[in-house]
């Protein structure tokens, strides 16, 4: 975990994905930001939740309770490489659900964008 900002080195900042995205980006790391933009049914994290990912696959924050973070991280690496945002969808209605779906039975859409 990098030192974010000595002036505000409290627990909330240490775990704040938007602060981490800024700090990582300033430190010269290539960064993508994933945001839950829509949920249906029971979803583990509310709309507006963030996951921040760097080009090494390091991440902080969450867009689900750990169910789909792995898939979001690997898509984020493509977004970092291409510089183009992407929309991802996960849920039981989706065939990918059998691989990385939400065990709670909900569906979520996640927007992934580069930070640069």
């Amino acid at each position: 975990m990098p030192h974010v900002n000595s002036g505000q080195d409290n627990e909330a900042v240490r775990l704040d994905p938007l602060k981490i995205a800024e700090a990582w980006s300033r430190a010269g790391r290539k960064v993508a930001l994933a945001t839950v933009v829509e949920t249906w049914g029971s979803a583990p994290r509310p709309v507006g939740s963030h996951l921040v990912i760097d080009e090494e696959g390091d991440f902080e924050g969450s867009v689900s309770g750990g169910c789909v973070e792995g898939a979001v991280v690997s898509e984020a690496l493509d977004v970092i490489a291409s510089g183009k945002p992407a929309m991802l969808e996960f849920g039981v209605a989706d065939e990918t659900a059998w691989r990385v779906g939400l065990s709670c039975g909900g569906r979520i859409r996640v927007y992934v964008e580069p930070v640069a």
């Binding site: 995205a21 800024e22 980006s25 300033r26 964008e113 930070v115 640069a116």
Partner: peptide
Amino acid sequence: MDLSLLET
């Protein structure tokens, strides 16, 4: 997102 926008 632009880094400057994120900083703001």
